[in-house]
Amino acid sequence: MRGRAKVGTLAAAVALAVVAALPGAAPVVVAGAHATTVAKSVPTLAGCPLFPANSAWRKDISHARVNPHSKAWVRSVGLSGHLHADFGSNPSYGIPYSVVPTSQPKVEVTFTAYGDESDRGPYPIPPKARIEAGSDRHVLVASRNCHVYELYGARRSGNSWRAASGAVFDLRSNKLRPAGWTSADAAGLPILPGLVRPDEIRAGHIDHALRFTVARTQRGYIHPATHQAGSTNSMSAPPMGARFRLKASFSLKGYHGAALIILRCLKKYGMFVADNGSNWFISGATYRGWNDDDLNQLKRVPGSAFQVVATGRIRH
């Protein structure tokens, strides 16, 4: 929770500066010796704000109305299932990404399965860009020109690339994909902005929604998602883009480190259903420095601790 405070003495300003150095504390900006402002955190990526301030990704949903289908959708994902970090110190877990300068040379990309729903290249993919382990084979690149470039089913092809689909997102815009279009993700959402990243854990706070997977989705989507990949027409299963929130009543006592930061985020910003996969699996960046013991605390959080908030109508 962050707000604004004014302090009239240098001693108080110093005290606030000390608090700001603690994990999870908000940044403190000191204007002279007579005024101290606790600034609201702005999530960034590649040196750019992570979407505009009014982006759905940055919306505080801690007090949002509960979706009428909440109980059914949580039950569908699993009341007795548990949260799980789909990333860790093992480099074969998580989704790797690259940050490149504006001068990064662009390379051609040939799209196959979803070429008619892909953003044409070229893309600024570095020669040593890492490909996600497993079948999805995502390649994610954040450019300092404030754009994110993402590929699904990516494979190198000489000096160029082939991919099942690709999408480009402008971090300065709230513009969605065209209705019905996929991206590098099944929901038509960007992937990289929804990852748990080590730089945010080091900062002590995550100020945007996260991304997670569920095994069974209905054939529909809620904005900002633009695409469905469901297996049922049943309203008892969540659609792509459904936004789950950790209940305010769920106690965080006993949690620490990365798990505590993630859980605080899930209470305030929640997480979007972004793809079909294992239930309650949260996505994070590939990083050898993850503390697996910290992340394993998430396995103590049951599905029953979540609810779904009302963020818009289901589109079919």
Rank of each mutant, 00 (worst) to 15 (best):
Y287V: 00
D185Q: 09
S283N: 04
G277V: 02
F306K: 12
G284L: 05
V309E: 08
F250T: 03
A242S: 12
W280K: 12
D294M: 10
G230D: 01
T182S: 05
A242H: 07
T213W: 08
G277N: 06
L171G: 03
T217M: 05
R202C: 04
R243N: 09
T232S: 11
S236I: 07
T286N: 02
G194L: 07
G241D: 04
G254S: 11
H227P: 01
K175Q: 14
G204H: 06
P178N: 08
T286D: 00
D207N: 08
C265A: 15
G230R: 09
I201P: 01
Q307S: 10
A305H: 08
T182N: 03
T311L: 03
G180Q: 04
L266N: 04
I222K: 09
G194S: 13
A225D: 00
D292R: 14
K267V: 02
H227Y: 00
G289M: 06
A305L: 04
G180Y: 11
K267N: 06
S173Q: 08
P198F: 05
G194K: 06
S249I: 06
R300C: 05
S278G: 13
T217E: 07
T286V: 03
L252W: 04
A225R: 01
P193E: 12
W280I: 05
A258L: 11
A186P: 01
A225Q: 05
G220P: 00
T182R: 05
L246A: 14
A209C: 08
K247C: 02
I262W: 04
G180E: 00
D199T: 10
H223R: 08
G284Q: 06
T232C: 06
A305S: 06
R216C: 10
L263I: 05
R264N: 14
D292K: 12
R300V: 13
A209F: 06
A229G: 10
Q228M: 13
P198G: 06
R313G: 06
Q297L: 13
D185V: 12
S231D: 07
